[in-house]
Computed example of a mutant assay.
Amino acid sequence: MTIRVVVADDQELVRAGFAMILTAQPDIEVVAEAGNGFEAVGAARAHRPDVVLLDIRMPGMDGLEAARIVCAETDCRVIMLTTYGQDDYLFDALRAGASGFLLKDVRRDDLVYAVRAVVAGESLLAPSVTRALIAAFTSGRALPPPRTELLDALTARERETLRLLGRGLTNAEIAAALVVSEHTVKTHVSNVLTKLGLRDRVQAVIAAYETGLVTPGGFTA
């Protein structure tokens, strides 16, 4: 399977460098490049790629608005690119459907891994970005009132799975906590994502906070 990618960044050298790294991989094809959000959305609509790399700060339409449109109109995964580990748009971008963030100084191997990972249904955040996300939750910034009604769609075991996802546990750790197999955990996770209309585990973490299952200060690494 060839992974089709669109690279969007207003800096030509950055864009070309990322495209060169990805094109060198036997299983990845860069189908288009874009210099702003409008071009990125157009490329996503025209090529229907598997992954779109979006610079969060671009002229005209920024990466955040582009992410909202791309995630709403397509099934492709979006990875946000940023120079800033403490980006103000972090929470909104993840809620829009982005599968994760990478810093622009990402290592070559980590860039390639990230593209393959999100296609496999995983989500990712650079460590400094993860700290920013947790800090936002802990401070209560950007959090709406608890939406407890969303939990009505889940069974008791699925609610517990969501709570543990919100604490950042892996499938293996959740399996140990619930005393079930990893296969069972994968089923619970899949059910949670489907019932709540979530794209991946990053959005599940956000949902855990939004529903009140995990509260500011209740996070344990």
Rank of each mutant, 00 (worst) to 15 (best):
P144E: 10
C71N: 12
A126L: 09
L102I: 09
D9A: 03
A177G: 00
T23E: 14
V205C: 12
G121R: 11
L94N: 09
T184N: 03
A142P: 07
A208Q: 12
D109F: 11
Q203P: 09
A96D: 03
L90N: 06
F38M: 14
L154Q: 07
T211I: 01
E12L: 15
V205W: 13
A66I: 07
A19R: 08
P146N: 01
I69H: 10
V78H: 03
V214K: 10
G168K: 14
N191V: 10
A8W: 00
L154E: 08
I134Q: 14
Y113M: 13
T74S: 13
E158R: 12
A208H: 11
V5Y: 00
R95A: 13
R131K: 15
S139W: 05
G17K: 10
G166Y: 14
L196N: 04
V30H: 00
A98T: 11
R167T: 15
T187F: 13
G100S: 05
V112P: 05
V31A: 00
S181Q: 03
G63H: 10
K195W: 03
L164I: 13
L81S: 07
A172T: 14
L198Y: 05
L178S: 01
G97P: 08
L178D: 02
A221M: 15
Q25M: 00
V189E: 14
T184Q: 11
L143T: 01
P144A: 13
H188L: 15
T23W: 02
S123I: 03
T130D: 11
R45W: 02
G85H: 11
E73M: 04
G17E: 09
A156F: 12
V7D: 02
V112W: 04
E173P: 04
A132V: 11
A204Y: 10
T138F: 13
N36C: 13
I134N: 09
L111T: 10
L111G: 07
Y209Q: 08
A176D: 03
L64Q: 00
V41L: 06
D88A: 15
G63C: 07
E65R: 09
L154G: 06
A32T: 08
Y84H: 15
A114K: 02
L124D: 02
L143C: 04
A176R: 06
H183S: 15
T2H: 02
V214D: 11
V180M: 00
E149Y: 01
T187Y: 13
P26S: 05
R4L: 02
R48M: 06
D88G: 14
V185L: 05
S181N: 01
D62W: 04
